[in-house]
Amino acid sequence: MPTDISKDDIRALKEGRDGAMAELVNSHTQTLLAVSFAMGFSQADAEELAQETFAAFLSALDRFEGRSQIKTYLVGILYNKAADFRRKSYREESLDKIQDDFEKRFNESGLWSRPPLGPEESVLTGEIKELIAQCAEGLTLSQKTAFFLRESEGESSEDICNILGVSYTNLRVLLYRARIKLRECLEKKWESGKHD
């Protein structure tokens, strides 16, 4: 995919021209903040991450080879910064239990033995939104990022793979896991709320 930033723009950035930097920051801050919020960062941390992302991009302009869209490239830097930020508390937990629980929902013929429960409204209520937002906190950083980029930003698989540095197969697993975890969590919260 061709890049959306010209060689002239890159030169202007290298020369530190005011207008060039303002253009870069004005065009991409909103996306970087949105991705950071979706990853669960606070407003202050999201802004710091966006700032560090621009600083890292500007300090290594030569590394940007123009093979990807600048947005994809910047979100890739942001993702790595966010992973560093979370490194200490970040652990990719095993999905075995969730996967097992999901498998147990079907009988040998592949029919539901424990059918899905939980909300089925076609219009989102505030309560459901709140429950889903709470459940999203339980996703890992890579799951959250992959899911947000796909569902909200409508990024292509190729771009998301570049941003996260994963293969297409890994991306499918990330999205599968994110969806299964969110749904199972939603059902649990919904059903327990009903019986409180």
Binding site: V35, A38, E121, A133, S152, R179, R183
Partner: peptide, 13 residues
């Protein structure tokens, strides 16, 4: 439910 979850994720940020 999966559709609903997708819509909500869009609205979180």
């Amino acid at each position: 439910q999966l559709e609903m979850i997708s819509k909500t994720v869009e609205e979180i940020a």
